[in-house]
Computed example of a mutant assay.
Amino acid sequence: MSEITPALAFLLTRRSRPYKLLGKPVPSKGEVATFLTAAARTPDHGKLEPWRFVVLEEKALRRLAPLARERAIATGQDPDKAAGQFEVSPFAIVVVESPVESEKIPAIEQTYSAGAVCLALLNAALGAGWGANWLSGFASHDRAFVETGLGLAQHERVAGIIHIGTAKDTPPDRPRPDIGQKTRWIAQ
């Protein structure tokens, strides 16, 4: 089967859009529910669902910007860079890695599942025609920010922040990996 299906064609040409190029309108609650449903179909060894979502509308993003700036200053990070995504983006969904105690499923596999949710969510938004970008950044890894600003529990962490909106522009494509240089075949 060597046919390029529409789904494969999308994957071969998909491109994120920088959060700085995203504006209004943003997806409706119904569209977001569809994206979240698609993202939740990700591989999940043991059916543990070791992730959850925090949806950030524009006012919530703007509320988080000063906290990101404050935490960046307190820890010697670039405050403009830390706060930028919260000051500019019109809408975002935080994918929270929320590990589940399991004797059978290693923690790293739960981390992989949360990362897969990020990519599935990003691709769902892009596939529906929206502009989208997967970011993390300093604030995503700062315990004071994620616990105070996003309400994460001590055992949780941000897997990614998926910004979604209307793409104002299409940036030039970036260089892509040389698959031949990144691949090793083993026949026996």
Rank of each mutant, 00 (worst) to 15 (best):
R184K: 15
G137C: 06
A124R: 04
G165T: 01
F35C: 10
I73E: 09
A82D: 01
G131I: 06
A39S: 05
P18N: 07
H141T: 03
A114C: 11
I105K: 11
G131P: 14
P6V: 08
V32I: 09
R71Y: 02
M1K: 15
L61G: 01
V94W: 00
A39G: 12
D173P: 15
G160C: 09
R143L: 12
R69M: 08
E101N: 09
E97K: 15
A39D: 02
K59P: 01
A144S: 09
K59S: 03
L36E: 03
T148D: 02
E101L: 12
T166V: 10
T13G: 02
I108C: 13
E57K: 01
T75M: 13
A144Y: 06
R41N: 14
N133C: 09
V26Q: 01
R63A: 14
P43L: 14
G165Y: 01
P25I: 13
A33G: 06
A92Q: 00
G160P: 00
W51F: 09
A68R: 05
E58V: 05
S102D: 04
F35R: 02
P106I: 11
L22M: 05
L122Y: 01
I186G: 11
R17V: 13
Y112G: 07
P99W: 06
I186N: 05
L119G: 15
D173K: 15
A114S: 09
F145C: 07
V94L: 02
T5C: 12
P106S: 04
L22I: 04
V94P: 04
E101V: 09
L64T: 03
G46R: 06
A128T: 09
P25T: 03
T148N: 06
L152M: 08
E156T: 05
R157I: 03
G129T: 12
D44V: 08
K20E: 05
D44Y: 05
A38F: 13
A38K: 10
A114R: 12
P177N: 13
T166L: 05
A82C: 00
P175K: 14
V88I: 12
V54Q: 02
G129W: 15
L22T: 04
P106H: 03
V96R: 15
K81I: 01
T42N: 14
P90N: 04
G137I: 00
P66Y: 02
G137M: 05
P6N: 13
T13L: 06
F91S: 04
I162G: 01
G137S: 03
I105S: 07
D173N: 11
S113N: 10
R184N: 11
A38E: 05
L61H: 00
A60N: 00
A92N: 02
A144E: 13
A60H: 04
W134Y: 03
A92K: 00
A124Q: 11
E57W: 04
T37H: 15
W130K: 13
Q85N: 01
L64Q: 05
P90H: 02
Q154N: 08
S2K: 15
A60S: 02
P66V: 11
I73S: 12
Q188F: 15
P6A: 13
D80N: 10
S2G: 10
P177S: 02
L48W: 04
L67K: 03
D169L: 13
K81R: 11
V100I: 11
H141N: 08
G149Q: 06
A107E: 08
F138M: 08
D80M: 14
A39V: 13
Y112D: 12
I108S: 08
V117Y: 01
G151K: 11
I4W: 00
E97F: 10
V94E: 00
D178C: 05
A72N: 10
K24M: 08
L48S: 06
